[in-house]
């Protein structure tokens, strides 16, 4: 019985958190957008940044999702093996998405593949996506929630390079995405890069990289240097907001990496749009929560 009420409590909290994330950008994104706005001096770029800021204020005042594409919900959970609701977690996250979908409301973004119909509930087979990291000997759970819109999901790309192509090949792989689909993904973008051994390991890392705060760095010195090189390089292309030209292009480049097979370099790119709606919440075993991405929130 107790577990049932606890489950309900966590479902409601997560539903409120999802709704919150749909209308308010995380602190690091807001700060970065304001910074980029200051750098742009042209009429066009500054008008677009001002329009974005106006939209965010209206979304807050009117209590509406800031972008109409509220995406497919994705959760990255780092769950302690001793967290009391571990068995319920995946199903309660699904319930939370449905609850938020009807209360906020969010757009119905789950189309069953092959049968090709919209479920009308924003959830379906395997959606929301839940990625699991199991943490031994912990009774807490950390949840990243992310709204993956269509425009910013489209540029996603993964491949396996031959070692002869080296990190030069990785560079080209990333840059090519920027000037093709990246243009339409609502820059300034947050660019997530995975460098690993195969397509799926690189792809997962590239999404994980988008969960990292803007301005954080990879702990490996060379990887961190490459983040900076790519950031400066992509900025020099001058995509500007909405890809319509400006002094800058990106909010940042985050690289995540693992070891690789000697004969392969797995590489993947994922991008987050300017409306990068990610949230991070940590629950302890009594469901006391802490939100790290947005300051001053009570659910």
């Amino acid at each position: 019985m107790e577990n049932k009420t606890e489950r309900e409590k966590m479902t409601h909290l997560m539903a409120s958190f999802i709704s919150y994330v749909s209308k308010k950008l995380p602190d690091d994104v807001e700060k970065k957008l304001a910074e980029l706005r200051k750098i742009e001096t042209g009429d066009l770029a500054s008008t677009i940044y001002d329009t974005m800021a106006k939209n965010q204020k209206l979304a807050w005042d009117l209590d509406r999702p800031c972008c109409q594409d509220t995406g497919v919900l994705q959760f990255w959970v780092k769950c302690g093996t001793k967290f009391p609701l571990i068995d319920e977690l995946e199903s309660l996250l699904k319930d939370a998405v449905v609850e938020s979908t009807f209360s906020m409301p969010l757009r119905h973004n789950s189309v069953e593949t092959f049968d090709e119909y919209n479920t009308g509930r924003n959830v379906g087979k395997g959606t929301p996506t839940v990625f699991w990291d199991i943490v031994p000997n912990s009774d807490k759970v950390e949840i990243y929630t992310y709204m993956a819109g269509g425009g910013c999901t489209l540029p996603g790309k993964a491949g396996v390079l031959m070692p002869g192509m080296g990190y030069e090949g990785v560079t080209k792989f990333v840059l090519d995405v920027m000037t093709s689909y990246g243009l339409n993904a609502c820059p300034p973008l947050l660019v997530g890069v995975g460098v690993a051994t195969s397509v799926e390991t690189a792809a997962l890392l590239s999404k994980k990289a988008l969960m990292r705060p803007i301005g954080s760095h990879n702990s490996n010195e060379r990887a961190a240097a490459m983040e900076k090189l790519l950031e400066d390089g992509i900025n020099s292309i001058g995509l500007g907001p909405q890809g319509m030209g400006g002094k800058m292009s990106v909010m940042g480049v985050n690289i995540e990496n693992t070891a690789r097979h000697p004969s392969t370099i797995g590489v993947a790119v994922n991008v987050g749009c300017w409306s990068h709606r990610r949230g991070h919440i940590i629950f302890d075993k009594n469901l006391n929560y802490e939100i790290t991405t947005h300051s001053g929130v009570t659910l």
Partner: peptide, 22 residues
């Protein structure tokens, strides 16, 4: 714009390559 972007992308590529010969 795309023509401009692609030109600058090629320049950025050349520059980055100098530093990532790991």
């Amino acid at each position: 714009k795309k023509v401009e972007y692609n030109r600058r992308k090629d320049e950025a590529y050349e520059e980055i390559c100098k530093h990532v010969k790991f």
